[in-house]
Amino acid sequence: MTTVARMAVLDLRTVWPYRYYSLAVFGLGVLVFASRPMWMVPGLVLLFTSQIAPYPFNVADKAGLETLYAVLPLSRRSVLYGHYAWATACFVVTATAGTALALAFARVQAVPLGDRTLVPMLTLSWALFAVNIAIQFPLLVRFGYTRVSVLGTTLPLAAVVGTVYKLQLNMASIQNWLPLLGAAGVAAIVVSAAVATTVDRRRVRYGRSVSST
């Protein structure tokens, strides 16, 4: 296992004690989108992933895990990339579970949900997730969860949802943009990771880790 993968597993173990909270958020999302199977995956990704993916930052702030990261045989780059790998794993699990649930609800409700809907649905979900994380993570890396607080996780989410609403996006309108949306998501994550690496140097220098003598 690479150090990035180990770091992603560490993020999983960090939030593991709070899994029931995570399941409650997921269950809430399922309830909200149960009547609209087509929007199940984008909805769950935005509602669930946007809360759970940054959660290791929250626990890290409270438990002083930045010190643990500095003590473990891990480079800072592995720590940062591990956070992104964890978030991406959250997306994959959410999208997989969400797709299964969407298909089940669509079948029960006799709503047509074929490949022509599923593929745009998943691509849009990926793009929404990626842009949201791309904005959130550098802020969390630079300032920590406590200082960014709820605004740091909800404002990017609101911006993403607002953009979708403003552009009047629907599954039909994004059919021609799928490759671009997929690539834009990847690009957003890559750029965000580079920005996070840059701002992390400032955090190490002036952040909490230097406050104690």
Binding site: M1, R6, V9, L10, R13, T14, W16, P17, Y18, V59, K62, A63, G64, L65, T67, L68, V71, L72, P73, L74
Partner: peptide, 27 residues
């Protein structure tokens, strides 16, 4: 290098068996 500070830097809700499961892969 083993580091022991004047405070713990582990998740408070981890059980001691989970501490091992979490840290073992790194060493």
């Amino acid at each position: 290098v083993g580091v022991v500070l004047d405070h713990t830097y582990l998740v408070g809700d981890w059980r001691l068996v989970e501490v091992e499961r979490t840290l073992r892969p790194f060493y």
